[in-house]
């Protein structure tokens, strides 16, 4: 596997990836298994209705009626809160590692002593990040498709596929952001800080705008909004949103290439 920067980036994650896959699979299974209980618990419905709408909105369920459909419930857990956050954290950790992390550890000098261009390091790192995130998204997909019949989720294959393509693009976008900040600065702490801030901001603004009308215009800059606005787990593919996320991610990788090529390698 250690034949290229792409291979090395995946090689470095080979053990961590197993744990991520198990974690995502466990999360998906527990979430799905919880659905019949939730459906048959009127008390829980009352409890949820008593919660402040802002709190519910953050977890993707401002509308209680939607939350109590299988798609609404699964979407709120696996695609609006903990699920995408896990994928995003994974993507950001890889995006940070490729440039800023390598410089932080001091290994970039040795890598760049070999005949590889900085452009190639960024692009192969980005490609590896996409593949690794896709493995997690595929895990989520596999668990949902496998458990769907047993727990009466009534999800269509297209809808599950659409939601996973969407969540993967959402995570890749944030990983590409980390790559871009790393490419521009070469500073690992700054990279993690900026990427985390963007995730937190995007997530909160998207949730809060559901209940605070004044925030509606700001919601449009949130990648979470791009991904969730079309409710892919209910309505299937939202191609304009997917294309938008893919374009932004590509643009961020281009910025990473430009930024890394123009500056000194950090020590």
């Amino acid at each position: 596997m250690l034949r290229s920067v792409f291979g090395k980036t995946i090689w470095e994650r080979r053990i961590g990836l197993v744990w991520w896959v198990l974690g995502i699979a466990a999360l998906a299974m527990l979430t799905v298994a919880f659905w019949p209980t939730l459906r048959d618990q009127p008390d829980l419905t009352e409890f949820l209705e008593s919660l402040p709408p802002g709190l519910l909105a953050l977890f993707g369920g401002a509308d209680i009626d939607v939350l109590f459909t299988p798609a609404g419930f699964v979407s709120s857990r696996l695609y609006a809160s903990i699920g995408p956050i896990m994928l995003i954290v994974f993507a950001i950790s890889i995006g940070t590692r490729v440039v800023a992390g390598e410089e932080d550890r001091g290994t970039m000098d040795l890598l760049l002593a070999q005949p590889v261009t900085r452009t190639r390091i960024v692009i192969e790192g980005a490609a590896a990040m996409v593949v690794l995130v896709a493995v997690l998204a595929a895990t989520l997909l596999a668990v949902l498709l496998a458990t769907n019949p047993a727990f009466d989720l009534e999800l269509t294959v297209t809808a599950v596929l659409a939601a996973n393509v969407g969540v993967m693009l959402l995570a890749v976008l944030h990983g590409a952001l980390a790559l871009a900040v790393g490419g521009l600065t070469g500073n690992r702490a700054v990279t993690l800080g900026v990427a985390t801030a963007v995730v937190v901001f995007g997530w909160f603004i998207n949730g809060l705008a559901e209940v605070v009308d004044q925030l509606k215009p700001a919601q449009r800059v949130s990648p979470f909004h791009w991904f969730l606005q079309g409710s892919p787990l209910t309505n299937g593919f939202d191609w304009p949103a997917n294309v938008l996320m893919a374009l932004v991610a590509t643009g961020l990788v281009a910025i990473a290439v430009w930024g890394f090529n123009r500056r000194d390698v950090a020590t």
Binding site: K8, E12, R105, G106, T107, D109, L110, A113, T267
Partner: peptide, 8 residues
């Protein structure tokens, strides 16, 4: 051979 040596 870099001066500040760090390796994978």
């Amino acid at each position: 051979l870099p001066g500040e040596l760090a390796m994978f």
